[in-house]
Every structure is written in structure tokens, then in C-alpha cells.
Design a binder for these strands. Structure first.
Lengths: 208, 208
DNA sequence: ATTCAAACGGACCGTCGGTCCGCTTCACCT
DNA sequence: AGGTGAAGCGGACCGACGGTCCGTTTGAAT
């Protein structure tokens, strides 16, 4: 990589991170980034492909520390399995909250609403692995999705900024929920009967 | 309301609903709707204010049946409280799944990522009321948010279309989770100790 | 039939993501 | 050091889109 290219690459990343943090997840255009970074628009697109790629690159850099943390947690066999799941969720919560505008921007990338990138997928797989050790019988894949849905940046931002819930309260709620899910009671009631009796009166969707 | 205005109003709503269903939550422009409905662009904006308003109007009409259903559920004092919550969640799930592209479009309205409209708020308040009867001591407001987060259209669409989970599987997962949350065990472990000991090592966010 | 306000419609505007191509600059080679 | 080719640069340009404006049309009340 040429020297000027490396310099521009770093400048663009730093500028984008700053603009997103200052102006929110939608408060910047590609022109803004280019101008503020002191480069031409073409340079930004040459480096990162499109807006999507730029946001991903910034997130990727910012979340590097957390990824290492979660990787270490996977290998920490001395810690009880349940505690590892809870800690995984807690650290991810903290990470998302610390970079709310940035992660929100990631979730709003044009192509898909929910992140389909490698990092998100890796996070999910790791959580599945951890949950499986606690509840080998349960639907770990779904449970991981359910817990991760609680940690979506737009969800957390909504709770904190629109609804006015305090961050500690939300954090406690998320962790309690994770705990409940992990310690679920296997004596399942007849959920099917309760539910289908009322909901299938109109349309019976989802049974193709 | 003048006759032609009423006719155009209905035509625009129907056309928008059709386009969203056919082409997905982002597959239509305001010009598209106007042209397909046989009216001028100005007419669409005069009626609905902006893109946001148009999508909301379509959703509002489509969800009318479900709103009545949920209202009846609130008043059904003969049904056990827990069953009412589960049924509430189940019918909302069915409603969202039946109109996935439309609800997804609603969630992507420009102003805010998470719906802040009157309907969403009403749904949340009703769910809070129902949950409070089951768990008077718990954080009903947060729990309602947590359950509703599972029913976000983009979340459900991701699980079904990207991850390939079947609709019944997701439905069962969501209802099980609701059940678990409602029947949570009040004997709380020392969650705080477990969590803060590991996660606060880096940054201690959220304790202002 | 007259009248006028409500409604209409499409030309028009600003913004933005993304492309293109002529110019510049780096790094390597002799 | 000077030459050389390619990698990199940058901003003019394009098409799409949300939203506005205003001259024209139309419905209904009198």
C-alpha cells in the first residue's frame, strides 16, 4: 500500500468515526466525510466501495477489542458455562452502548436491515456455542438470536433515548432475561393448546 | 371530503399496499406509487405528508383488525392473565408475519428506526398492562419492550429469510421465551457480582 | 349558471450515492 | 538523479429520489 493511500485510509476512517459520533448515525454524507478528511470523494469510494463498506470498516476497527474479549471468553474453560454466557451478553451490551451511533449506523446500511456481515455472524456462532454448553437440549440457535435482538443498537437507543429508561436499568433487564432463558424450566406447559386456540381464529398464518 | 379526493385516497392506499407487498419494503418510490395509482405526485404528498405518513397510513389500515383483537383481549377478564399475555404475543406475531414487508417498511421510515407512532405505543402500553397482572413486582415496562423486540419485522424477516428458520420454529421460540419471562423465578442469584466482575474491566460504561 | 375553494398534477429543486476520466504522485529501476 | 509506469487521486458529472410550487381543473354549494 502506497504511503499516501495509507494516510488517506486512516484519515477517512478517523473522520467517519468522528462524524458519526458527533452527528448521529444518519448525520453524514459521503461528501461530508471526503471533505472533512481532506480527500476527494472518489478516494473514499475507491477505498471502501460504498457507504456500507465505509461504515463496516469503521465498526470493524472499533469492535476489535471486544472481539478479542469474546474470543478469550470462549476459551475460558475454568469459568462456569452460565456465567460465561451472561458475561458475553454483558460485554456486548457495554460495547454497543459505548458506540451506539456507530452500531446504529451499521444496522441502517442500505442492503439489509439486520447486519449480515462476518462479525455479526461470528458473534452469533460464538453465543450459540456458549449456550449449547448450558442447555444442550434447547434451541440454542434461536435463543442466541433472541438475546442478540435485545442488544440491537436501535432497540437500546429507543429504550434509553425515547423511553427514558436508564442504562443500568436496561442492562439489568437484559441480563435478567438472559438468566431466565438459561435457567428455563423444562416442565413445559401445553403452550400449543393455549396459543393456537385463540390465534388461529383469523387466517392461520405460517403453516404452508 | 370531495368525491375525487376520496377516490384518490383509496387508490393511493391500495396501490402502496400492493407495491410494498410485491416489491418489498424498499422497492417503491413515491413516483411509483403516484404513477401506479394514476394520480400526480403532488396528490400523494398532499394526502399523506411524506413517505413516512404514507407507510403509516397503510399499516394503520392493515392492522385495524388486529388492534380490535388485542383490545378485546385486554377486556377478557375471564381468561387467565398469563394466557392473555401469551395470546397477545401470538396474535401480534401472526399479524407481523402476515404483513412482513409492510411492517418492515414501517420500521424503516426515515425519522426514527423504531416506530414512535401512536399504534406502537398503544401496543406497548397494553402489553405492559397485561404483564403487570402476571408479575406485579417485575419490570413490566422493560419486559414488554423485550418481548416486542422479538417481534420486530426485521428480526423476524432475518430469522426466516436469512437464517432459514421455519416460521413455526420461530413462533414456538418466541412463545417459549414469553412463557419463561412470565414464569421467572424470583430467587435472583447474585447477577451483579457475576457480571460487573468481568465486564467492567474495560471502561465501566453506563454508570453515570 | 356562477363561483370559488379544494384538489390536482407534473415541472422543478436540492441532496445524495455512486461513476468516470484526465491529472498527479509515488516507488522502483537503471 | 532522472525516467517511467502504474497506483492513486479528485472533483465534475449522472441518475434517482423525496419533497415543493404554482398554474390549472373540478366538484359542489348557491
Amino acid at each position: 500500500m502506497r504511503k499516501d493511500a495509507a494516510r488517506n485510509h486512516a484519515a477517512i476512517l478517523a473522520t467517519a468515526a468522528r462524524l458519526i459520533a458527533e452527528r448521529g448515525p444518519d448525520g453524514f454524507s459521503m461528501d461530508d466525510v471526503a471533505t472533512a478528511a481532506g480527500v476527494g470523494k472518489g478516494t473514499v469510494f475507491r477505498r471502501f466501495g460504498d457507504r456500507d463498506g465505509l461504515v463496516r470498516a469503521v465498526v470493524d476497527e472499533t469492535s476489535r477489542a471486544w472481539r478479542a474479549q469474546s474470543e478469550a471468553l470462549l476459551a475460558a474453560d475454568d469459568v462456569p458455562a452460565t456465567e460465561r454466557v451472561i458475561t458475553f451478553v454483558a460485554t456486548l451490551f457495554d460495547h454497543v452502548m459505548a458506540a451506539l451511533p456507530l452500531v446504529t449506523a451499521l444496522e441502517r446500511v442500505s442492503t439489509r436491515s439486520i447486519a449480515c456481515d462476518e462479525n455479526s455472524d461470528l458473534t452469533h456462532r460464538r453465543l450459540v456455542a456458549l449456550i449449547t454448553r448450558v442447555r444442550p437440549g434447547g434451541d440454542a440457535e434461536f435463543l442466541a438470536h433472541a438475546l442478540l435482538a435485545q442488544l440491537r443498537a436501535d432497540v437500546l437507543g429507543h429504550l434509553v433515548h425515547q423511553c427514558g429508561l436508564s442504562v443500568p436499568r436496561v442492562r439489568a433487564g437484559v441480563l435478567s432475561l438472559a438468566w431466565d432463558v438459561l435457567s428455563r424450566d423444562p416442565r413445559r406447559v401445553d403452550l400449543d393448546r393455549v396459543v393456537t386456540s385463540t390465534s388461529t381464529r383469523s387466517g392461520t398464518p405460517g403453516d404452508d
